[in-house]
Each structure stands twice: as C-alpha cells, then as structure tokens.
C-alpha cells in the first residue's frame, strides 16, 4: 500500500494530464503503427491476406534504384528547402514584429500562400509561373535572357518545389511571431539604455530567447519535409517526373502501395524513413543543449 501511495504521489498528476494522449497512443497510434510494422515483413497486396516474407522487403529496397533516387530527391528537398524556408520565415517575422502601420493586414497577406495548402490551384499557378511560356521566362526574356522549362527539366524541377516550400512559409512565420511575443519588452528597454545597437539586440536578446521556437520549427519542418507528398503529387500529377526528379520518398511509397498494390513493400519503405527521420531528429536534439536556451 505504502509504495502504491508513493508512486501515486510522484506520478499521479503527471499521468492524469497525460491520460488522453496515452489513450490515443495505445489505440489510435500504436495499433496502426504496429500493423504497418508487421506488414513491412510481409507481402501484402491489400485485398488478400498478408504473407510473411521476413526481411525480403528490406533487402530488395537496397537494390532498388528508384528508391535510392527518391531518397536523394527528398534529402535535397529537406536540407536545402527547410533552412531557406526558416530563414525567410524568421526574416519576415522580424519585419512584421515591429510596430509598423497595417501590420495586421501584412501578416494576413503573408499567410495567404499557406492558406492554399495543397490546392489544385497551386498546380495551375506553378505552370503559369515556371512553364515554358510562364511568367518567369517572360520576365527573363524582357532582359534578354533565354529561359527554360523550369518545371519540366530534370535538373531544375526540384527547385520549383523548393520555391513552393519557401513560399508557403506561413506556419513557421506564425510560430516565430508567437515566440517573439514572449520576449519580455523590459529586456529591450534595458539594453537600449545600455546603448546596444539593433544587431546586437538581435544577437544577444532576441535570438537566444527565441531558440526554443527555432528549435521547434527546425525539428517539425524537417519531420514534415521528409514526408512531403502533396506538392510533388499535385505538380507532377502523381508521377514524380520529369525523369523521377521530383519523386519524393513518400510519393514513391504511395505509388508502391496504392498504384502497384505492394503495401508490404511500402510499409518497409515507411519504416526505413521513420528510422532516418528519427536519426536526424535525435541529432538535432543532441546538439540542442548547446544552443537552445530556456528561461526555466
């Protein structure tokens, strides 16, 4: 009895607050995840019962050129796109955090691209911008530069998707803004009295104090960029073309699962991705002690 009581005193409230999440974890998350882990060791065509195949899916994955290519495409997207997107989001958030007139309207306007989400309108728009006769080429033509078909050239198509990622920077921007709001104004006042310039204020006050949100944005954007699906799906029409240059990891996984009916193989691909994302996330967490400051 005594130990029970002590355990309750130590853990009770914590687990009470955690209860809804734990319930969700053990039902809604664990069951489907467990099932897909099992399926990754089977041959499963979705309509008939899965057949145990051991490590076959994982073994054939490493001999799959398309898989290797999709991994490469995704890594480019993540490690080029995410830093650029975050820099841009932070920059705009800093601009919009000042007391300029009409800032509310601007903030809403800057969020507009993200409101579109994965709408089909984006596909039309991107072709209008980066197609053979798109706006970008018209503008380049005006200054005498011959453009190219940005969206359909194997060497540039992925960059149009990275631009799309940067353009839809609304979510990290809002989070940065919310973080900037938590920086106590007294600190700025104090430093102004000390005669600190803007850049030094940013370096020594703003930046350290928003490292928790920066850290959050970095982790979350990396996790989600690894799983990016919709942009490539709508812009390449699900094909990942031209020449697989926009064949994102999850797009390939989707093709395997839903088009080729190889859900077992798709599950193996998914679990490999999970391990890869976990690796990079763990890396960021490991370094975070060096650069993330909490006020606690």
């Amino acid at each position: 009895m005594q130990t029970w009581k002590r355990m309750w005193a130590r853990n009770g409230v914590g687990y009470l607050f955690l209860a809804p999440w734990l319930l969700g974890l053990f039902t809604l998350s664990a069951i489907p995840m467990g099932a897909s882990l099992y399926l990754s060791f089977t041959e499963y065509d979705m309509f008939t019962s899965p057949e145990w195949s051991g490590l076959d899916n994982y073994v054939s994955m490493f001999g799959d050129d398309k898989w290797r290519n999709s991994l490469q495409v995704t890594l480019t997207y993540v490690f080029l796109g995410v830093p650029l997107q975050l820099l841009f989001a932070l920059f705009i958030a800093l601009l919009l955090n000042r007391g300029i007139r009409g800032v509310r309207i601007y903030r809403a306007i800057y969020y507009v691209p993200s409101l579109f989400g994965g709408s089909v309108a984006i596909a039309l728009l991107w072709r209008q911008l980066f197609g053979r006769e798109g706006l970008v080429n018209t503008m380049l033509g005006a200054i005498g530069i011959e453009g190219k078909n940005w969206i359909a050239s194997p060497d540039t198509a992925i960059y149009t998707l990275i631009i799309l990622l940067i353009w839809q920077f609304g979510a990290p921007m809002v989070i940065f803004l919310a973080g900037l709001k938590q920086v106590p104004t007294e600190l700025y006042e104090a430093s102004t009295i000390d005669g600190a310039g803007k850049w030094r204020q940013f370096r020594s006050i703003t930046l350290p104090l928003i490292t928790p949100v920066l850290f959050f944005n970095l982790v979350m954007q990396i996790i989600s960029a690894f799983q990016a699906f919709t942009p490539a799906y709508i812009i390449s029409g699900g094909s990942g073309g031209p020449l697989d240059s926009t064949l994102f990891y999850t797009l390939y996984l989707y093709q395997k699962g839903f088009t080729h009916f190889q859900m077992g193989y798709a599950s193996a691909l998914a679990w490999f991705l999970l391990v890869a994302i976990a690796f990079f996330t763990a890396l960021i967490f490991a370094t975070s002690k060096k650069w993330v400051y909490y006020q606690e």
Binding site: P32, S36, Q227, T250, L253, M263, A266, I277
Partner: peptide, 20 residues
Amino acid sequence: IMLVTMMLPFHVTVIPQYIL
C-alpha cells in the same frame, strides 16, 4: 515516443486505421 509517432508516413497507416 510522441515524436516517433509523427515520423511514419500516413499512407501506410491508412488501411489499419480504416479497418479499426
């Protein structure tokens, strides 16, 4: 564990979840 639950592409959990 919470972080890990976010790392699995949803396409492979769709069917088990649908069955559930």
